[in-house]
Design a protein around this nucleic acid. Structure first.
Length: 211
DNA sequence: AATATCACCAACCGCACGATA
DNA sequence: ATATCGTGCGGTTGGTGATAT
């Protein structure tokens, strides 16, 4: 037995909000606050909306000090770095970007950043790279990374690769995939920090795979 | 010009969790 | 201890406009 629905789906309005609905909700919250009960709020102000829908509308659109414009390069970098560190915890990531909502960031990641980080086409590594090392157990393949060590090929959805003993890691980012298995042995974390737009993890960890 | 496909994003859905009775 | 409720969260969907064929 599942839990009871929060409202009567047949009686609530769904879909895009009208300016009138926005005005009602905004005016009430700015004057009285949410009252600590989103479920009861729509009935109180005469809105035929689910309480959850009101909450979402307020948090993602009506709330003061929200940024609605495009993301800056700094914001891009921060989102990517945080995603690599903590995964798809959008609310935590949003907390680091004032004026941005978790929904905004999630949408931005899914529609733009993910495509930059994980280009669909198969990418070949640079022909000038040194030969790949033997595959060692110390290399973790994270985020569905698929590396063909024999032929230097890196396949879609590749993400991070870390050599635990040496604390070295590499990451493929922003449409350019410079990585090969050999690069992990070739440069240190400090050196890698000089490579933009690479993102270097502070410490090795298994990254959650989000598809 | 018509149609198909893609990109974007607002909004919905269901689950997990914490508070409370 | 446990059942219920409200909230927060992340995944997903669907509408719309832009672009390609």
């Amino acid at each position: 037995m599942g839990r009871a629905p929060c409202c009567d789906k047949a009686k609530v309005k769904k879909g895009p909000w009208t300016p009138e609905e926005d005005a009602k909700l905004k005016s009430h919250i700015q004057t009285h606050g949410t009252g600590g009960n989103w479920i009861a709020l729509p009935a109180k102000i005469g809105l035929k909306r689910c309480g959850k829908s009101c909450r979402l509308r307020w948090l993602n659109y009506l709330r003061p000090n929200l940024k609605h414009g495009s993301f800056t390069a700094d914001e891009d970098n921060l989102i990517c770095t945080l995603y690599l560190t903590i995964g798809s915890r959008w609310s935590v990531i949003a907390a680091q970007l004032p004026g941005r909502t978790d929904n905004d960031i999630k949408n931005y990641w899914n529609t733009r950043l993910k495509k930059k980080l994980f280009p669909k086409q198969r990418i070949r590594s640079e022909p000038t790279l040194p030969p790949p090392p033997q595959l060692q157990e110390s290399f973790l393949c994270c985020n569905n990374l698929e590396v063909d060590f024999q032929h230097h090929n890196i396949w879609e959805n590749s993400a991070a690769m870390i050599d635990l003993p040496s604390q070295m890691g590499i990451y493929s980012a922003m449409s350019q995939l410079h990585t090969s298995s050999s690069m992990a042995n070739a440069i240190s974390l400090e050196e890698m920090n000089n490579y933009q737009p690479w993102i270097v993890l502070d410490e090795p960890r298994l990254l959650p795979y989000s598809q």
